[in-house]
Design a protein around this nucleic acid. Sequence first.
RNA 1: GGGCGUUUAGCUCAGUUGGUUAGAGCACUUGCCUUACAAGCAAGGGGUCAUAGGUUCGAGUCCUAUAACGCCCACCA
Length: 840
Amino acid sequence: MLDTKYNHIDVEKDKYNSWKENNYFLAGDENKTPFCMVIPPPNVTGVLHIGHALDTALQDIIIRYKRMQGFDTLWLPGMDHAAIATEAKVVDRLKNKGINKYEYGREKFLEACWDWTNEHGSVIREQWAKLGLSLDYTRERFTLDEGLNKAVTKVFVDFYNKGIIYRGEKIINWDPEAQTALSNEEVLYQDDKGAFYHIKYIISGTNDYLDVATTRPETLFGDTAVAVNPDDDRYKHLIGKNVILPVVNKEIPIIGDEHADPEFGTGVVKITPAHDPNDFEVGERHNLERIVVMNPDATMNANAGKYEGMSREKCREGLLKDLEKDGLLLSVEPMIHSVGHSERTGVMVEPYLSKQWFVKMDTLANRVLEFQKDKDKKVNFVPERFEKHLNHWMEIQHDWCISRQLWWGHRIPAWYKGDEIYVGMDKPDGDGWVQDNDVLDTWFSSALWPFSTLGWPEETSDFKRYFPNDCLVTGFDIIFFWVARMVFQSEELNGVRPFKDCVIHGLVRDKEGRKMSKSLGNGVDPMDMIEKYGADALRHYLTTDVAAGTDLNFDEDKIKSTWNYINKIWNASRFVLMNIEGLNDISFENLKDIDKWILTKYNKIIKNVTKHMDKYDFNIVGSELYNFVYDDFCSNYIEMAKFSLEDKTTKSVLCYVLTGILKMLHPFMPFVTEEIYQMLPIKDAESIMISKYPVYDKTNVYLEDEIIVDDMIEFIKAFRNVKKENNIPKEMKIRFEQGSNDLINKILKLDECITSEELDINSYNVISKNIKAVIYYKKEETEADKQAKNKEIESLRASIERRKNLLSNENYVNKAPKDLVEKEKETLKQEEEKLSILLG
RNA sequence: GGGCGUUUAGCUCAGUUGGUUAGAGCACUUGCCUUACAAGCAAGGGGUCAUAGGUUCGAGUCCUAUAACGCCCACCA
């Protein structure tokens, strides 16, 4: 027998391993229709956070639902090597041991990375188990494993041969801390305090000057021109002349270029082609020299003259002083401007001229935009609005910088000998070839994840069976990083979308709505929550609290109340199990009104739940089931069934409906539902997770009987209300004028009422649709009672008035659905009757 | 500058194709240890659905404008 209290620790112990050992997580039943999802591979940098718990719980709900519906479900696990993130962690770890990465050497460093990966990988696997995720571990992959490495290399080589991947010298985002290039997505912009520094650039051979405004004076050493707009009347006569670059004292030309906006600043722009992407383009148009003035660590190089070796900040300070001394600093105008920072290290990103590898985006992106117009080819976003995010990103079409100056990752399959480049799967023949030192952006490999994990580029049976995937679940914050790239890669390499549906969820924030972060210390460890309330409560809370796609403000009190909900389910099950011992088959003979009533409600719930599960509307499913469990099943059916517990039909219905409830709840709360399922006397499977999901059965829908019991419930509620609101004493008598009912007597314990005529001093009417009764009791009507009665009469009159108006409105009667109008008429009739009784 | 989201009870949030009196949890009031559950049960209080217009017989829901807050993208010499 079950304990009186739900104990999540006991319930969740050992179940996961038994599921796993029984191979319930395994895919591959060829008799079934395949359904496949791949997990967004977590970084091996650390442990899972609450966002992972949400993300994976959603996926487990989908996969368990589909599995119970009879699909051959594959949910493929794996992890991401997370190039820059992991490398930073390992560098730190070595640093703590007094080891420098470069002195340590590439090979040994990579070994340290693998150690890290193995340690954290097993922690993550333990956490997946705690969460109850039904992942097929026989197919687990790692973005840096042999097969995926091969896939990545093949894509690189093929793309190079097709001209989609190229090597070029361009301005890229440089992280001076990690000392690597970054993609645009890895740069976060934030508003910083800065200033517009107005500097005097003397026009050669005159005493005149141009007022050049800049936010980055220290890049002055790389200036190779000054630009004005060719249509700017103030300056256009100067085009072709030279100015003297301050401090450096060399002549640079004044050029005319559209880039100079006459409306902005002074209308004069210094051009630094090696340190600004716009200037780079201007430089290309005018064939200007590119002078790099910084080292990779963002200290100034020899081109900065006496400032060589200083940090960019120190250089700026010194330079401004010198300019001021020479009278060349005209003014300093404070301003707020947004400055790019590295997503990973947080330092200010330096636009930096450098030779890198790029993916050419235009063709790839345009194909995605085309596919999204075709309903059979597009990725269906849930909620739909996120499709706009994808399309928008595709329209921007910045080429993707994919090389990273790191060691941990897929090494670029390019070899150099003098000016020669060779790109191929293996090292070229002959001596003197040196492989590119760099590795690829970690997202380059995860972009292939939906198919590389299934064996691609080999035509494996898994690939043929499970690709394209059916669904992918992830947060909106990585649509650009990951979803977008999977989509264009798959459409280029396979000619199809990588997955049919893409379910997007929001961020888990703290209670105040702030982003969780290390610096605020407001993060929540999902493992702590599991310890305190169980994975079932955590999963149900995270996946049903807010509407799809919106952020969730984490509130521990709500998990607590979810625990209470589970305790309710536990106790309802306890009651059912206590009363159905020995039941060995389900019999629906001689169904009573209440049996028909609950079966009808139950089937309606199945229909609704299935519909919303299919639309990934889990919060709606959650509240539908919650209301069904509390109101229909516990408060009403169980309470009414208590008077016919010897009846086999009652036992059958209790068992049948409870089983269905457990099954529909199972995807959300796998552990407790399994625990209870195992105790049922009648089961259709050895585990609930491989049992059959409930199906709507119209032969068990009885609309007439539903109305009868609904009416009884309404009456019972009204009776209790009247009794309480009017302070009616226990000594009373009740006389039914219509719809007298044994069950009502029992539930309201009316048989216990004293029936002496002496009580006949005061009376009160209780009516519902078809049940009418009068309560007689011995108590003088007080002033408060009278007032309450008057208040009720007033509100009834108002309601009748409103309804009469509505029904006399021809437009309403003609246009509104007929059954609705009928209902209104019915309600009006009742209200009028009630009023006349009240008025005596 | 462009786009998106949010605004509903004291707090956190639901609200499906427009349709009776707008829901839940927590908090609050009152009464109950009614042998499934006191971490519970029963009954109740609390909302001019951000504002202003419009469409409609009917608007929390659709349209237009405005405001506040949040997010994304672009630009920022």
